[in-house]
Simulated scan of single mutants.
Amino acid sequence: MTLLESHARTGSFARINPVAKLGASALIALPLILTLDWVSAAVALGLECALFPFASIGWREFWLRTWPVWLAAPLTGLTIALYGETSGHVYAEWFVVRISEGSLTLAVATFFRVLAIALPSVVLFVTVDPTDLADGLAQVLKLPARFVLGALAGLRMVGLFLDDWRALELARRARGVADRGRIRRFLGMAFALLVLSIRRGSKLATAMEARGFGSPVPRTWARASHFGGREWVLLAIGAAISGVAVTAAVLAGTWNFILGPS
């Protein structure tokens, strides 16, 4: 059992239905996607940071899980600052690089926007077990069982792909063919892994079909997926964060609906 799977079964927050976590992250992200201003994103990020300590995640694990987000946010903001839409006073200009008042404003908004959208998604799904998510999607959202179970089986194969890659690397090294030509070695291993994956996928599909996974008859589930008070509270928190962020942007006059007329 992996660290993610073992952590997903502990703590009250981890026992919340994954569908509610998916819905809460969507409620937070939707208004931030529809606008590009720094006030709404900053307010949403501040509220999220105040709630992160209640997510039953240690700070060490939090930083290990979210460091790609903290790396991507400033890089995205830097790109917008250098190549974003020019407006207002131009501070610097060289070739295709043009730093202006408008591009810096967009850069700040983009920085907070990436953090406000990505961080809660990572935190909410750290404690999600793939099987629990599949149960919730099929039983709560009533998605087709064949689609859900097929996606779950594919997700479970990711760990095997990593093991196969390591085994192929060790086998080629033992045969003395892994000492030179990194690009050629990578392409050869990738093709071998592709062939192995196709064979394993065909066998898995045949086995699942033989066990009745493709039957049109409504199936039963080993574990019931419950959606109760804790789930509705989490959805309400997500909606509240979005509402406060949007209200703050409107009152500050920075609301910038990106789908509106230019």
Rank of each mutant, 00 (worst) to 15 (best):
S6E: 15
H7A: 14
T10V: 15
G11Y: 09
F13T: 06
R15G: 05
I16V: 13
N17Q: 06
K21F: 12
G23E: 07
A26D: 12
A29K: 06
P31E: 01
T35E: 01
W38F: 03
W38S: 00
S40I: 00
A42S: 11
A44I: 02
I57Q: 02
E61D: 12
W63V: 15
T66Y: 11
L71I: 15
P74M: 09
L78F: 09
Y83D: 02
G84L: 01
T86L: 00
Y91H: 05
E93V: 05
W94T: 02
W94N: 04
F95H: 08
R98N: 03
I99A: 06
E101I: 11
T105F: 03
L106C: 01
A109M: 06
F111T: 02
F111E: 08
F112G: 00
A116R: 02
A118N: 06
L119N: 09
L119V: 15
S121R: 01
V123A: 06
V126I: 14
D129T: 05
L133S: 11
A138C: 15
A145G: 10
R146K: 12
F147D: 13
F147C: 07
A151Q: 10
R156Q: 08
L160R: 14
L160C: 06
F161P: 04
L162Y: 12
D163T: 07
E169S: 12
L170G: 05
R172I: 07
A178L: 05
G181M: 10
G188M: 13
G188V: 11
G188C: 09
L194G: 07
I198R: 08
R200V: 00
G201S: 13
G201W: 01
K203M: 08
G214N: 15
G214R: 08
P216G: 05
V217Y: 07
A224P: 04
A224Y: 07
S225D: 03
F227Q: 02
R230V: 14
I237E: 06
G238K: 00
A239S: 15
I241Q: 13
V244S: 06
T247D: 04
T247P: 01
A248M: 05
A248H: 02
L251G: 01
T254S: 14
N256Q: 13
N256K: 12
G260P: 04
G260E: 03
G260T: 12
G260K: 08
